[in-house]
Design a protein around this nucleic acid. Structure first.
Length: 144
DNA sequence: GCCAACGTTGGC
DNA sequence: GCCAACGTTGGC
């Protein structure tokens, strides 16, 4: 799961313990959220920063949560086309697990993995939520 | 700041 | 349904 640290970083999650992953407004990313199961491990990725990369771990807590920000006109994530009757956007809550001593940089990940193995290293990939294959996830964990 | 790689919008 | 125009993302 990707986030800009200036908006919401791993330090924020560590401080709060858990958070609702609101604001995802891409259908493909939403579908990946819907495919999640409580207990799933999450790689927390920092984008738009000096050293983009995986900075820690989280765990999926609750799935299928309606994203309240879609109904809030004051929210940057407000969606006027969504309704309470048929909400478009739902998401998951995640709990903090671990903050890495140093980030596992995108540059390192690009060295080790192909875009087939790890969607994150694919050029032009802008999805904020992406699946990671278990075998690849274990390799990443062994690199920490 | 640049720009490639998208996704979305809207006229037709 | 097509596609040009536009906006956004995000690495560099």
């Amino acid at each position: 799961m990707k986030s800009e640290p200036a908006v919401y970083g791993i330090e924020d999650l560590e401080k709060e313990g858990e958070t609702l992953w609101d604001g995802v407004r891409n259908y493909q990313a939403r579908n990946y959220l819907r495919a999640m199961t409580p207990g799933d491990l999450v790689f927390f990725y920092h984008s738009n920063t000096k050293v983009p990369g995986i900075v820690g771990l989280a765990r999926v807590k609750e799935t299928g949560v309606i994203d309240p920000s879609q109904f809030n006109p004051d929210s940057p994530y407000f969606d006027p086309k969504s309704s309470h009757q048929s909400p478009r956007w739902d998401t998951v809550s995640v709990a903090w697990v671990e903050t890495f001593p140093r980030p596992l940089s995108l540059a390192t990940l690009k060295e080790k993995f192909s875009s087939h193995e790890l969607l994150l290293v694919r050029k032009g990939n802008r999805l904020s939520v992406m699946p990671v294959e278990r075998s690849i996830a274990e390799l990443i964990l062994s690199m920490i």
